[in-house]
């Protein structure tokens, strides 16, 4: 039994010659909020897709509790307690919010075709439980009263929350959040940041976060990895990352570190 909930060992994935993820090593300790940052096209989402089973990496291992899971079907990986959200919200748009969460509960339920048809006491109990659980989840993410809305008709911010509710319904040990604050205003972003913290603190879920909003990242991350052109170029605590010259160059281009230093010096001078 290892202390890491997920561990990637030299994971690589390429698309027709383009290496999207290149020998990435990550160690995500249990109970951490672990952020992955990097410029657009750095391979962050591809890495998520490898972990959640959409892609099979060409080489390397993905260990979940020390056991390799790469190449397993996504539904199996999900049933083991890894949930995720998507960069562009992907809800079941023509179904209601309640139904979305109920579908998220799929792994937790057992009733089969026969139960559905003859409503055995067991399945009736399960049915009531699942409805209550779904309502509770909606309440938890702040969607109370929106349960019977079609997912498509919800405003964008609420759609994001609904997606998280659906992911939480699976009762995950690990939650992968792909740019959860994209397209949100400042207030919504602050709320969501608090919410993510609550997930970790109250539900003890480990979280891997892809995020572009540096304020969010620096605020809540326990540890950060930086990807650039598919390679991990830095890893460390938020303060370490902030002062890492390679990271700054990845974002600002060659010579960026010197530029940033100059800029900061200027600012300091003007303040003084």
């Amino acid at each position: 039994m290892t202390e890491y909930i997920i561990e990637t060992i030299k994971v690589s994935k390429s698309f027709g010659g383009l290496i999207a993820v290149n020998e990435v090593d990550l160690q995500v300790p249990r109970g951490f909020i672990y952020s992955i940052i990097g410029p657009n096209g750095a391979g962050k989402t591809t890495l998520f897709n490898c972990i959640s089973g959409f892609y099979t990496p060409e080489s390397g291992n993905i260990l979940y509790y020390g056991t390799p899971i790469q190449g397993m079907p996504t539904n199996f990986i999900s049933s083991q307690g890894i949930s995720r959200t998507y960069q562009n919200v992907r809800l079941f748009g023509n179904l209601t919010a309640m139904e979305n969460v109920l579908i998220g509960l799929h792994n937790k339920l057992n009733s089969n075709l026969l139960d559905a048809v003859i409503h055995t006491p067991r399945s009736a109990r399960e049915n009531t439980w699942s409805l209550q659980e779904a309502v509770r989840l909606l309440e938890f993410v702040g969607l109370k009263g929106f349960g019977d809305y079609l997912a498509n008709n919800l405003p964008y911010g609420l759609q994001r929350r609904l997606e998280i509710a659906r992911a939480l319904a699976n009762n995950p040990r690990l939650l992968l959040l792909d740019e959860p604050t994209a397209g949100m205003n400042i207030q919504e972003t602050t709320d969501l940041t608090q919410f993510i913290k609550r997930l970790r603190d109250e539900l003890e879920i480990s979280i891997i976060l892809i995020e572009h909003d540096m304020k969010v990242v620096m605020d809540i991350s326990d540890r950060i990895s930086v990807l650039d052109y598919g390679m991990k170029i830095a890893e460390g605590s938020p303060s370490e990352i902030q002062s890492n010259s390679r990271v700054i160059e990845a974002y600002l281009g060659p010579g960026g570190a010197a530029l940033a230093e100059k800029y900061q010096k200027q600012r300091r001078n003007s303040h003084a």
């Binding site: 979940y64 509790y65 397993m72 079907p73 307690g81 989840l137 938890f140 040990r173 539900l203 879920i205």
Partner: peptide, 16 residues
């Protein structure tokens, strides 16, 4: 939504 840090999952699956 109880605590999750329990035993590791068992990983077996057959793919027909």
């Amino acid at each position: 939504m109880e605590s999750n840090l329990k035993s590791p999952p068992k990983l077996t699956r057959r793919n027909y």
